Simulated scan of single mutants.
Amino acid sequence: MLNSIMRGLAIHIGPFLTQALRYLMGVLVMLPLAWGAGFASYRPRNIGGQFTRGAVHTAGLCLWFIAIPHITLADTTAIGFTTPLFIMMGAALFLREPMRWERWVASGLGFAGVLIVVGPKLSASGGGYSLVMLASSPIFAASFLITKALTRYERPEVIVAWQSITVALFSLPPALTQWQMPSAVQWLLLLLCGVLGSAGHYCLSRSFSVADISATQSVKFLDLVWAALLGWLLFADIPSQSTLIGGAVICASTLWIARREARTARTN
């Protein structure tokens, strides 16, 4: 839902302006929570780490927003699923997480399921923009690895709040070059993006705080299953045979790794 809305906004009001206003709305969404808990509780322990994460995430977003108006959502989804592979490699190299064979197998199966679903739909119509989108994947992976490191001493809600603050600040200069006043409907859609994005990043940060980041990556492939289900429920899009087969592979791999991780946690 978030990607679909932001794609439409980027086409109409420009990618950089959409990026900046989406994260500004994220700040507004977090303000009532910070007010209720006390602003002091949202003071980060490592302000430098928060700004570093914000700068890296902004760089990935700039590439993502440049490409998104020019390639299909199917292509976007397929390319975006390379990010978990970069995350798993980074987790092994920089976070020294144990890379058990089950995690590699589950991620490989999940990625295979993605290819089954989107393979028939992929096209070369995006041209060079597909490469721009692909370039954002390792940058997003670096951002999420920094997030994992921050969860060792920061609460998830603090990370989400400061991500919105830092990305909004870093996105402001390019956004000013595209400034135009959004319509009332566009403001409402941007606010919805702030809610959806903050909720999604909170869930991610929460999962990173309680589990190895590499253990969470196979679940990312469930995005395609939810997309197919929502398309059927909201837009009467009948899932194709490849979608059903690929979705079954994705669900099977996710359930399998969840059981393996739970069993390993009990034995440890």
Results as ranks from 00 to 15, higher is better:
209 S>G: 11
106 A>V: 06
181 M>R: 15
165 I>R: 00
124 A>W: 14
163 Q>R: 10
88 M>W: 04
171 S>F: 01
43 R>A: 13
117 V>H: 05
24 L>E: 01
82 T>P: 02
49 G>K: 04
174 P>A: 09
121 K>D: 13
197 G>N: 15
70 H>T: 02
118 V>N: 15
199 A>P: 00
180 Q>W: 07
86 F>I: 08
88 M>Y: 02
227 A>E: 03
84 P>D: 10
264 T>P: 00
148 K>E: 01
224 L>Q: 02
254 T>R: 01
200 G>F: 05
228 A>N: 00
23 Y>F: 15
238 I>Q: 12
138 P>N: 07
111 F>D: 03
257 I>R: 06
96 R>G: 10
268 N>W: 06
249 V>P: 06
66 I>K: 10
10 A>G: 13
209 S>H: 06
85 L>R: 09
197 G>P: 00
5 I>F: 09
97 E>F: 06
100 R>H: 13
252 A>N: 04
155 R>A: 14
163 Q>E: 10
7 R>F: 08
93 L>G: 01
257 I>P: 01
118 V>C: 15
40 A>G: 05
15 P>S: 15
113 G>R: 07
232 W>M: 14
49 G>N: 03
256 W>R: 08
99 M>P: 01
252 A>S: 15
142 A>V: 11
102 E>D: 11
9 L>I: 11
98 P>M: 09
207 S>M: 12
18 T>H: 04
232 W>Y: 14
143 S>Y: 07
261 E>I: 02
42 Y>K: 04
208 F>P: 03
115 L>M: 15
246 G>N: 08
177 T>F: 13
53 R>K: 12
202 Y>S: 01
7 R>C: 03
95 L>W: 08
249 V>D: 08
79 I>M: 06
136 S>H: 08
143 S>Q: 02
159 I>C: 02
112 A>I: 04
49 G>P: 01
173 P>T: 05
64 W>F: 15
124 A>R: 11
259 R>V: 05
132 V>G: 05
107 S>Y: 00
268 N>G: 11
57 H>Q: 12
109 L>N: 04
120 P>L: 09
75 D>V: 11
179 W>Y: 13
120 P>E: 05
176 L>P: 05
135 A>M: 11
244 L>V: 15
212 D>H: 12
259 R>H: 12
64 W>C: 00
27 V>P: 03
137 S>Y: 01
162 W>I: 00
155 R>F: 04
4 S>M: 08
18 T>N: 06
207 S>T: 14
8 G>H: 06
261 E>A: 05
8 G>L: 06
50 Q>R: 04
206 R>S: 12
96 R>Q: 12
221 F>N: 12
145 L>G: 00
149 A>F: 01
104 W>P: 00
